[in-house]
Structures are given as structure tokens and as C-alpha cells.
Design a protein around this nucleic acid. Structure first.
Lengths: 217, 217
DNA sequence: TAGATTGTTAATCGATTAACAATC
DNA sequence: TAGATTGTTAATCGATTAACAATC
């Protein structure tokens, strides 16, 4: 897609690999919980239902984290993948839309654990303003800009209806947001420097429907 | 994966294609809302940021829905994809776990629109029993079995913590559930006849983090 | 009919798997 | 050292794209 020129830091890692990274991270976490401190690609491949070859290929996109004859050090690999995913430090974020889904995300303690710190939750409905969510209060949309600028926020979850998602996303981008976690049922068209990650729940449910109800022999 | 023998109905459609089907469905819906009643693969490819070739290939996995020199009839194609996805009829489903996420899903009117009819929402916390969610009441887990059997339910959304997700999923399967929509942070190991669709939100957020904070040149 | 656009085959591209030499 | 397991190259497999004849 993008043509890199001159001194480039990182060769293009394929989306398929990036897709799998957080899953490796989760499995390594589980291993740590079980006090397992080394693992071979073949043992991990059995647990994850992948091939050992794929695991080694994936990891070698980022450097040699293993050791011949030994395997991988769980704690070390976990940390390295954390660095790759950029979750080795805190990232402030906001949630736009305080409906059930926005509230659900705000209450997800797992995100905090991964370093994502909620700095604001906003809604256009005045009835919700001031209502507490964790240790934050729901604020009017008009306050997004100042919060984003104050905390240099780059990540925003979009939990509003699809018809308002497009203009709101544009505003967010103009404030400096460049990572949109989009739960609205639209594909957002964004400038090149902005990244979107879509979570289209109804599409996920339709895929399940396809697979459950397809004729199997 | 599976080896089909004898008279088989459907050749294996690749996951990549299935992944895209609900998105086609959504775009066709948008076209209908705009009163557009025919579209060529090339026009659709521009809107969806795909190649026209891919669209034609994808659709031809299921049959020739287009017409040379004309393109595709939007309404017709929408209906055909609906049939493929098995959302041309109603599917009862349940939600297990009435935390914020379970409640959020229960309130998603979009699912109902796609034919997914909520028949029960359950939680182990007695304090929640009897509380209203839409026109349902939160019920104890003990009642899952009878509801599943009464309505011949095959789909269940799992919105409970990861440590209880595994045993609960096993129970659900024993009651006849064979489609698990899993929001817990575990990969469920299920028998061959059961299908799982995972929505691992924290993994999605980590992918966003990777892409936003990776060094770009 | 002529023009447009599909359905489909062939070519290309990329991702996964296999194999094995390097090395801890 | 011998055994185990990585890192990496080569082979395979599958998915995407290109091309074009069929046909509405």
C-alpha cells in the first residue's frame, strides 16, 4: 500500500501477523499465571492450534526472541510482544457515546491492565451529563476538544449511532485523535495518518449464523 | 480441515469470503436506503475499497447473481446474501452474563432487525434476578436448560469472566447450543459440531495500539 | 446491434508449511 | 558433547488480481 522511501525503520508486517500478536500475548500471560517460564514453539503450537513453523515465522518478523535448544523465555517474550504492541506504557483514551456499549467499555478493567487509561466519556444527551462511570463523569460532547488536547489523547472509542459517527469522527480527527476504535455500523473514511479498528458486532453475529446453520455433511 | 465424502452440498467456502459477506450485506442495505436498485461490481468495488474482481469471485462462490451488461440487482443480491447467511428467518438466542456487556448486547436493536430474537438473559448474581432488560427479566443460570430446550435455542452469547466461561460453555453445549458467541478472554475448546465466534475486545484494542503507535515513515 | 459487465479461467502474489543447517 | 530447538531458506498452498470470452 504505502511506498516507503529512504531510511525506513520497519518493513511492512502483514496484517495476518499483527492479527495474531495479541493472541500470543494472551497465551503468554496464561503461561505466566501457570508459572511456566519457558516454552518451545512446538509446545505453544499445540496449545494455540497453530503450526510451530508459523509461530517462529511470526516472531522472527520482529527479531530472534528464542534460543536454540531451549525455546522461548515466557516472561521475556511476553514483554517483547508488549513492546511491539506498544502497550509497555500508558495510553490515554476517551469514549464517545455513553449508551450501554460505551458504559460497558468504560467498565472493562482489562483495558486499564493493558495500559489504556480512560480520560473521558462523552454523550450528547444532557440527561446523562454528570452521571458517574467509575471515577469519571459523563460530559457533553463540547468538552471533548479540551480533554483531548489537555491529555494529548490519540485514541477514541466510537459508540454512537452510525448516522452521527461520520461527522463526530471528523471532529475527533481535527482535535488530534488518530486512532479510532469504531463500534458504529459504518466504515469511516479517514485521512492516511489515521487508523481505524472496526468492531462490527452484528457482522460478527452474522458470521456465526452462517457457520452454525450452513449445511454440514 | 474436514474431508467431505459422498454427496456433499457445499464446497468449502474460504473463511476470507465468509468474513466479507456481512459487509456486502451492509453495503447493499445502504444502497437500498439510497434507493439505488442496480450496481456493477466496479461501482461497488469503489465504495467498498475492494477490487471488482474480488467481488465477482466472492459472489460466484454461491451462484451467478448478476447479469452481463447490467450488473447486480441490489434488492435481489441483498436477499440472496441474507439467505446464504441464514438470516432470512428468525433465530432465538440467549445471553449468558448480565454485566454491562450482556446488557449492551441485549439492547442492540440491530440484532433483532437481523432476525436474532433474544429469549433469555441469565446471571449467577441473585441481586440481578428479576431485573428487566427490554421485555425480558434476568434469570438465574439454573433456568438456562429449560429455556434452551423449550425454544430449541442454538445460539448463546457468552459475557461472563474467563474463569467461568469454560465450564459454562460446556454446559450450554450439553443443552444443545452449537453456536457460541464468545466475549470472554479465553479460547473455548469445543467439539467438532460446535462453532465459536470470538470477540476479543482487548485484542482488538491492542491491534489498534500497534497500528497507531508503530513508527511510520 | 453495440456497449457494458458478468462469470470464469489463468497469472500473480502472498502467506503458510516443511525442511534443515546453525547453535545453544 | 549430544539433544533440542531455533532462525531461515525453499516448497507449497491458497487467495487475490488480471484478462477475456460469453452474453445480456
Amino acid at each position: 500500500m504505502t511506498i516507503y522511501e529512504g531510511t525506513m525503520e520497519k518493513k511492512g508486517i502483514s496484517q495476518a501477523v499483527i492479527q495474531r500478536l495479541p493472541r500470543y500475548y494472551r497465551y503468554l500471560e496464561d503461561l505466566m499465571d501457570q508459572n511456566i517460564d519457558r516454552i518451545s514453539s512446538s509446545e505453544l503450537s499445540k496449545r494455540m492450534h497453530l503450526t510451530a513453523s508459523q509461530i517462529r515465522q511470526d516472531l522472527n518478523n520482529f527479531g530472534g526472541f528464542g534460543q536454540q535448544g531451549y525455546g522461548y523465555n515466557v516472561k521475556n517474550l511476553h514483554e517483547e510482544i508488549g513492546k511491539i504492541l506498544n502497550i509497555d506504557r500508558e495510553h490515554p483514551m476517551i469514549i464517545v457515546g455513553a449508551g450501554h456499549l460505551g458504559i460497558a467499555l468504560a467498565n472493562y478493567t482489562n483495558f486499564r491492565k493493558r495500559g489504556f487509561v480512560l480520560r473521558g466519556i462523552f454523550d450528547s444527551n444532557p440527561k446523562l451529563w454528570g452521571e458517574k462511570v467509575g471515577d469519571l463523569k459523563i460530559s457533553p460532547m463540547e468538552e471533548i476538544e479540551s480533554v483531548v488536547k489537555q491529555y494529548h489523547i490519540r485514541l477514541a472509542a466510537i459508540c454512537i449511532p452510525k448516522d452521527v459517527a461520520v461527522p463526530v469522527a471528523e471532529k475527533l480527527i481535527s482535535y488530534g485523535i488518530d486512532g479510532l476504535w469504531n463500534f458504529a455500523h459504518v466504515d469511516l473514511e479517514v485521512p492516511d495518518h489515521v487508523v481505524t479498528e472496526n468492531v462490527h458486532l452484528s457482522e460478527s453475529l452474522m458470521r456465526l449464523s452462517y457457520r452454525v446453520f450452513e449445511e454440514r455433511s
